[in-house]
Design a protein around this nucleic acid. Structure first.
Lengths: 127, 127
DNA sequence: TACTTGCTTGGAGTGCACTCAAGGGTTTTA
DNA sequence: TAAAACCCTTGAGTGCACTCCAAGCAAGTA
């Protein structure tokens, strides 16, 4: 129902994906190895061929990385996605927990920023 | 001129400082070893005796840690403090660079938070 | 005195997130 | 066709920030 039957799906090599995502080829292979990618397609000779969906997934993973989420938790999330619809609740919980942590981190950073501002003012003050 | 000549200066053992700061004794010794502490005083038998100034310094170091500053940069800052007044400019630069990084990090986190919100809404939406 | 608790040191070990090396096959370009 | 560029795998290495260990000294308590 949601599977595209497009005949001309664009497929990217690992170097193209590395260039687009900013991740290294090493990291992309490693992501696959640890189960952070939803099975990547291969060419007849065994080379990786990434799809636009893979790129979307990597974009989302990049956001999760940016939140400071651990790789272990991202792998957990990827597993839940693979397991299907019945894991939606647990996925949401994982994301909600991450959201709480991000909010706490922003608060912490904002607080530290105030100290930094204060200290920098002191240096600017005398001389 | 600013040296206190108080006769009853409170001195804390490493376990007291660990309890107060939340840092482990291991970490406190390690901080000293790598040059992140301004020489800590010792008892006649060689045990560390921390002062209130040490506690203040550790509090500030904690704030720097909270900014995500690397230990190497914190050590650099500590060195500059030890070197005296003529390093004020460089210290301010270090703090200003850190401030820029903190601001960028907050922006990044805020951005990732929006994605998280969006995704969580999706999970809440269906079912 | 014997025991327990707390402290000392130098160096080794840990967990995380990559990052690289070696050795070999494949695809593209001149 | 030959060279250059690209890709594969497994397994080892790296950098950071701790964290722990072993062996021993010192102070306080039963």
């Amino acid at each position: 129902m949601s599977q595209s039957l497009s005949l001309t799906q664009t497929r990217y090599t690992i170097s193209e994906v590395a260039a687009r995502t900013g991740l290294s080829q090493h990291t992309l292979r490693w992501y696959e190895r640890i189960g952070l990618m939803p099975h990547v397609d291969r060419s007849h000779s065994g080379q990786r061929r990434f799809t636009d969906q893979d790129l979307d997934w990597l974009g989302f993973v990049g956001k999760l990385r940016a939140t400071g989420m651990s790789v272990a938790d991202m792998v957990r999330y990827a597993e839940l996605v693979r397991e299907g619809e019945h894991t939606r609740g647990e996925r949401r919980e994982l994301l909600e927990r991450t959201r709480r942590e991000v909010r706490a981190r922003i608060t912490e950073l904002t607080d530290a920023l105030a100290v930094l501002d204060y200290k920098i003012d002191m240096y600017a003050g005398t001389r």
